[in-house]
Write a protein that binds this DNA or RNA. Structure first.
Length: 278
DNA sequence: CAAGTTACCTGACGGC
DNA sequence: TGCCGTCAGGTAACTT
């Protein structure tokens, strides 16, 4: 369930181990991910290239080459990236290996193959990257992601606020866990229509989303089933969960019992005391 | 055009 | 023991 904080933690872990290294070989399992792995295209574009940077946009990792070519990786639900010694044993569900010129290799592992590995070709990075992220909403920490922007986008939308903030076309990086936590911390019921939030509530919600994501990044992300960072360490933001996964337990703020409810096909956790019904 | 539904995929888990 | 159903959920394609 890597959301923005988990992807950012992985990015921070990978970057120092990748920058300046050359890709000297690429291997793939034959199994397709969410989209087919562009194996031949990667061999053509990436072999002999040096990695210059590792970026993140929304829940995507972007590994940039000195040619301007880039690998774009989405971790889906169970995907992870790690650096391993070249000769270490392959793990079950490893799908792509990028061998580097220092005896290590970058590996993409994804149990459920919901993830994706894409390639942006060299030479026209700005165009291709712009195209790739054309429909993606602004980064939560960016200036363009203002309370005013969100308020405007929500105008006349009857969709549940929870589903709205999880829509990557509206705002990037907020998945089920951080949507649940942010709405609880903002005291907003997840079933409320997106358009029903006041300007003041949008201001508050945006501040809380930013703070929640930031805290989670500082905790190394949330490890629920098996998320680990690039060096194999789990995060610990899950100890700060106030509603997610806590159905039947007591709200730390008001003492009422947290309930679980399906909203838009996703598990939603609500404190009936703190988050008033719409 | 908005909103709702489904497919994709594997493993963990509960019930019998 | 093992079989079956359910759930986890980001994204895009699809239907209403």
């Amino acid at each position: 369930m890597p959301e923005l904080p988990e992807v950012e933690v992985i990015r921070q872990g990978l970057a120092p181990h990748l920058k300046g290294l050359k890709i000297i070989a690429i291997r793939c399992s034959e199994k397709p991910l969410r989209t087919p792995v562009p194996y031949n295209e990667m061999r053509g574009e990436l072999l002999g290239q040096t990695i210059t940077a590792v970026h993140r946009r929304a829940k995507y990792l972007i590994v940039r080459m000195d040619s301007d070519a880039a690998i774009i990786i989405h971790l889906g639900m169970t995907g992870n990236m790690g650096i391993f010694a070249k000769n270490s044993d392959p793990q079950k569900h490893d799908h792509v290996y990028w061998e580097l010129d220092n005896g290590t290799e970058l590996r993409f592992n994804d149990t459920r193959r919901f993830g994706a590995v894409r390639l942006l070709e060299a030479g026209s990075r700005k165009t291709l990257e712009k195209q790739f992220f054309a429909a993606t909403g602004p980064e939560p920490f960016s200036r363009s992601c203002s309370a005013r922007y969100l308020n405007k986008r929500a105008a006349s939308r009857k969709i549940a606020i929870k589903k709205f903030i999880m829509d990557s076309h509206v705002i990037a990086g907020v998945g089920n866990i951080y949507a649940n936590e942010s709405l609880f911390r903002s005291k907003i019921h997840p079933d409320r229509a997106a358009a029903s939030l006041s300007a003041k509530e949008w201001q508050r919600l945006l501040e809380v989303i930013r703070k929640t994501l930031k805290d989670a990044i500082e905790c190394g992300g949330s490890t629920i089933s098996d998320f680990v960072d690039a060096s194999g360490r789990g995060g610990y933001f899950q100890i700060n969960f106030q509603v997610y996964g806590r159905a039947g337990r007591t709200c730390a703020i008001c003492g009422e019992t947290i309930i679980k409810k399906n909203i838009g096909g996703r598990a939603s956790f609500i404190c009936p005391g703190c988050q008033k019904q719409p």
